[in-house]
């Protein structure tokens, strides 16, 4: 489902060249739940950004569903992100000026759907994460755990095959972290959603099918 072949990513400035990822080879199958671990700055988020088509590799090949994406134009990349991928971020990235349900609707704005269909899908996604009673609230009126659940609802509202979670429990206490983790496990088990999760927390990583470890941009496991 996800195929990375000899992927490297360099960040260049006028004076310094930093290798964020060096020759990564990774295959993630359909319905797999893997975690990516490693110390800060080892390239975990960069790897997730490359899988999520948010960034381009300096060299190597990224393929989704057997299709290499290096020849995709901006419009095609946007369509793949919209239809195939869902993102969950450590910082939640909710739009503070929009209500919970309006935040969840965001990915569907880029699809041809009626307002009614969009609203119905957003409410169903919020119900899925147990937030049906908070649809009219604004993000600042919610706890961190609730905000992350809104972010999960936003990530799954378009029914993507792949969820990419960048330290989804990183900003939460252990109890809320467990709640979020159980939602992800449930999505993986019952809806066969492929999940790639970056985490620092070995307790969370233990719950996934496989752990990929990075160190200084290199894959060590």
């Amino acid at each position: 489902m996800i195929h990375l072949q000899e992927v490297s990513k360099l960040y260049r400035t006028d004076r310094v060249e930093t290798t964020a990822l060096d020759n990564i080879n990774l295959d993630v199958g359909k319905g797999e739940f893997i975690s990516v671990m490693g110390p800060s700055g080892c390239g975990k988020s960069t790897l997730l950004n490359l899988i999520g088509l948010l960034d381009e590799p300096t060299s190597g090949k990224v393929a989704l569903d057997g299709k290499a994406i290096d020849r995709y134009g901006d419009r095609d990349l946007a369509r793949v992100r919209n239809e195939r991928l869902g993102f969950i971020f450590q910082q939640f990235h909710l739009v503070s000026d929009l209500s919970v349900v309006d935040n969840v609707e965001i990915p569907l704005l880029y699809r041809k759907m009626s307002n009614k269909e969009r609203r119905r899908a957003a409410l169903a996604a919020l119900d899925r994460v147990g937030l049906s009673s908070r649809t009219r609230h604004f993000p600042t009126q919610l706890s961190g755990g609730q905000q992350q659940r809104v972010a999960i609802a936003r990530a799954i509202v378009g029914r993507p095959g792949i969820l990419l979670a960048d330290e989804p429990t990183g900003n939460l206490d252990s109890q809320m972290g467990d709640e979020i983790m159980s939602i992800l496990e449930d999505l993986n088990a019952n809806e066969k959603t492929t999940i790639v999760m970056v985490t620092h927390d070995p307790r969370m990583a233990e719950k996934t099918h496989r752990v990929v470890r990075l160190f200084d941009g290199r894959q060590v496991q």
Binding site: R75, L77, A78, R81, I106, Y110
Partner: peptide
């Protein structure tokens, strides 16, 4: 950035 990640083109 979020809009781009969730499917908005340039």
């Amino acid at each position: 950035g979020l809009r781009r990640a969730t499917g908005a083109s340039r």
